[in-house]
Design a binder for these strands. Structure first.
Lengths: 107, 107
DNA sequence: CGATCATTCAACTATATGGTTGACTCAGTT
DNA sequence: AACTGAGTCAACCATATAGTTGAATGATCG
């Protein structure tokens, strides 16, 4: 898991519009216009946000005639989750036992 | 959980130096200089990174004489984890249950 | 073919970000 | 009181980001 991969992921997630778009995409594959509808943004702006999400591999695109169909690529979020995993021990109550659990996972 | 809280958290996490600093802070409370040591950066730059982490509430500061002692504030990462939690179903589910989930959402 | 819809591209603007240098503050030392 | 060490602040620079407008592309429809 390279650094710049996480850079892109977290950077993409740092924008509320993009997080909302991801949430929308999670409901199922849909066109760019459909994703754009809830926002008071130009198509160009939406297009840019999608480029950021795509560069971070958080979404997939598929051409369907004159439409671009967007879908969630959940695998990528797994990387973010794995990064967080290290810290989970610090906020979980039973510090010792979780830590042990994590140690086991490593081996 | 406000939007801008997540904005700050993910934004703070999008920089590799800051992620490394967090990792270092996780080892235990330490001074700014101690955190700065591994990086080829000026103190001012380190200071800025710490401000970003502090604004995101990812770290705590404590004054100890002429030192600033920095420690991890893991509670905040819990928010990021909770945000991710929604998506966990998409990568953990065996195909069958994911399919079911999507079917439910549609209706 | 020409019009239209869905979307992207290019150019531009404003603000944010990550870095630097140099002056400054505060605490402890000599 | 003067010096040094730890760290911050202010000003500045270069690049990135989020948005706009307007022209361009490409598929579909009359």
């Amino acid at each position: 898991m390279q650094n710049d991969v996480l850079d892109r992921i977290f950077q993409a997630l740092s924008d509320p519009t993009r997080r909302a778009m991801l949430r929308q995409a999670a409901k199922g594959e849909q066109s760019v216009s459909s994703l754009a509808k809830p926002y008071d943004l130009t198509f160009a702006a939406v297009s840019k946000h999608l480029k950021v999400l795509e560069a971070a591999k958080l979404i997939n695109r598929r051409k369907a005639g004159s439409f671009q169909m967007i879908s969630l690529n959940p695998e990528t979020l797994k990387s973010a989750d794995q990064w967080l995993n290290f810290y989970r021990q610090f906020w979980t109550a039973r510090l010792g036992s979780l830590k042990n659990f994590l140690e086991e996972k490593k081996s």
